[in-house]
């Protein structure tokens, strides 16, 4: 079966939980005081979806506005983007809008975007009206997920959805296998036997 390798990027205001969501998903870890991200972290996970499997290479970017210019380096060529806001912080939701705009104009045309309303374990402090968020995303034709990196709620589903949408959007490219350029995102299933191959042995 084919494995699709794709780059996705996490975007959103500082402290909304981008790193926490990625870590929860990839390593099932949660730290209450996750250290602030400087520039970007890199994580990978192989996701099995009914249609095949997708290797998500996640670039988890820093949230501070100042890093925004650099973030473009990461979302360029990305097949998917996860935009995160904090349901207890109005301003972080406003940022979602500007990120979507930026991606639509600057990123790859068929980039798949999903939005996560994170920290839904803190429902009491909610500042963003849920129907409002859903309506907004519906208009933009973007899937919205309620997530909690703390409890793990919605995290798995969200990444699965992201992976399967990316698969659908890019499956055309799967057929034209050709050479596996490292930077090309599509590769045909190869078994990775690092011990045996020692140095990376090109493609299959």
């Amino acid at each position: 079966m084919a494995t699709m390798e794709c780059k996705i990027v996490t975007l959103g205001e500082g402290r909304v939980g981008k790193t926490s969501l990625a870590l929860k998903y990839v390593k099932n870890e949660f730290h209450k005081d996750e250290i602030s991200t400087v520039n970007a972290n890199y994580l990978t996970k192989l996701v099995q979806i009914p249609q095949g499997s997708v290797q998500l290479n996640i670039w988890d970017t820093a949230g501070q506005e100042r890093f925004r210019a650099i973030a473009s380096n990461y979302y360029r060529q990305a097949k998917g983007a996860l935009i995160v806001y904090d349901i207890t912080d109005r301003k972080s939701f406003d940022k979602v809008v500007s990120w979507i705009k930026e991606l639509k104009s600057q990123a790859e045309k068929n980039i798949v975007i999903v939005v996560a309303g994170n920290k839904c374990d803190m429902e009491k402090e909610r500042q963003i009206n849920r129907p409002e968020a859903l309506e907004f995303c519906r208009k933009m034709q973007i899937r919205h997920f309620d997530t909690s990196a703390k409890s793990g709620n919605g995290v798995e589903e969200m990444f699965m959805e992201l992976a399967s949408q990316i698969f659908e959007a890019n499956k055309g490219e799967l057929g034209q296998s050709g050479r596996n350029s490292r930077r090309g995102k599509i590769t045909v299933e190869k078994t990775k036997h690092r011990e045996n191959s020692g140095k990376k042995g090109g493609c299959c």
């Binding site: 250290i35 400087v38 520039n39 970007a40 890199y42 650099i70 380096n73 490292r182 930077r183 990376k200």
Partner: peptide
């Protein structure tokens, strides 16, 4: 060959002078 660019790690190293 692997697509690793210095910016991917150097920015963090220099912004924190390795202290992170």
């Amino acid at each position: 060959n692997e697509g690793v660019k210095p910016a991917m790690f150097l920015i963090e190293w220099f912004l924190t002078l390795y202290s992170r």
